[in-house]
């Protein structure tokens, strides 16, 4: 038998660090990896949640691609991406630049901070509570919005208005996030750039376009990515405000899968919806990261 080599001192070298990954590794396996694989497997079965699932191959997916409600729910997702990612990013850029570059310099940083805090406040609410606030304000019989403007609109109950109303609520909820991130990003920008542009006689819009936007590009990507993912996942406001209705006027994939899981007990079908949603989100994430990498 060969002599046992002396063990290297435990504190030196690089060995042994992987031990620190074990607790998370096990939990991650139990809470994320295994459930996700189970979800994918279930999507190939017909199952009511009790008894043995019946293997039906791709039948759920075939049904899914022919299901009008499924396609509508993704169209609504696109609308919510506009409301939660596109509009807040564009408006947020203008607001952040105006606060940082204009208000901060002409009225003092405290004014700018106070305005920023006002824009950000909706973001601190649990999204379900934000839904309750607006559910109350938009109530058809006693809601504050109708009372104040003397209207009789059923904002959330009329299929013509429901989606637009939800979109407006989401803009309100989301706007503060890009403002805060962009203003933090603007701290990095060398003030000399602005001064040079100002001396050259560049207008505020030109400076905004050529300096602000190009300098905080990384923040713009992060905001667009995180907000797009949040829009794809949106559930709480739909549950609280409309339950996907009226009809399927505000149906989104996450609520559609919830409905199939827990109300219609079509677990296999619900799993297929959730799997497609997960795939889309992962693909969107990778696309964004690729574009960002190529850009920088």
């Amino acid at each position: 038998m060969a002599p046992i080599p002396a063990r290297p001192a435990r504190s030196r070298g690089r060995g042994g660090y992987w031990l620190y990954l074990i607790p998370s590794g096990l939990l991650f396996l139990a809470v994320i990896v295994v459930p996700f694989l189970m979800n994918v497997a279930t999507s190939f079965t017909r199952w009511s949640g009790v008894g043995t699932p019946t293997w039906i191959g791709f039948a759920n997916y075939t049904k899914l691609f022919g299901d009008e409600r499924f396609w509508t729910s993704f169209e609504h997702n696109v609308a919510l991406i506009v409301a939660m990612a596109v509009v807040p990013t564009i408006v947020g850029l203008v607001l952040a630049a105006a606060l940082f570059d204009y208000i901060g310099k002409r009225f003092g940083p405290r004014t700018a901070s106070a305005l920023r805090a006002a824009y950000y406040l909706p973001q601190v609410l649990p999204i379900a509570v934000a839904g309750v606030v607006w559910g109350w304000m938009l109530h058809p019989s006693y809601g504050a919005v109708n009372e104040i403007f003397g209207l009789k609109v059923n904002w959330l109950g009329d299929p013509d208005y429901a989606l637009a109303t939800v979109m407006a609520v989401m803009v309100w909820f989301q706007l503060g996030y890009p403002v805060v991130i962009f203003m933090a990003g603007l701290q990095r920008v060398d003030p000399a750039l602005y001064e040079a542009a100002e001396i050259d006689g560049a207008s505020w819009w030109r400076r905004f376009w050529h300096i602000t936007i190009s300098q905080i590009r990384p923040e713009i990507y992060v905001v667009l990515l995180t907000c797009t993912i949040a829009a794809l996942k949106v559930f709480g406001p739909i549950f609280v405000l409309t339950r996907g209705g009226p009809g399927s006027a505000t149906m989104v994939p996450s609520y559609f899968s919830y409905l199939n899981f827990f109300e219609k007990v079509n677990v296999g079908y619900g799993s297929a919806i959730a799997t497609v949603l997960a795939l889309i989100i992962v693909v969107v994430t990778f696309l964004f990261l690729r574009v960002q990498e190529r850009d920088s």
């Binding site: 690089r14 042994g16 660090y17 992987w18 620190y20 990954l21 991650f28 809470v31 994320i32 990896v33 295994v34 459930p35 996700f36 189970m38 979800n39 279930t42 949640g49 993912i229 794809l232 996942k233 559930f235 994939p253 996450s254 899968s257 919830y258 899981f261 677990v267 619900g270 799993s271 919806i273 959730a274 799997t275 949603l277 997960a278 989100i281 992962v282 994430t285």
Partner: peptide, 28 residues
């Protein structure tokens, strides 16, 4: 510690965080 394969570990964690909870909810 810079353990080997750390980039992959990070990617797996990040994907896990990005996954919609809907795709975990029923099995959980």
């Amino acid at each position: 510690g810079k353990v080997r394969g750390r980039l992959w570990v990070l990617v797996v964690f990040l994907v896990g965080n990005t996954l919609p909870q809907e795709a975990l909810a029923y099995p959980l």
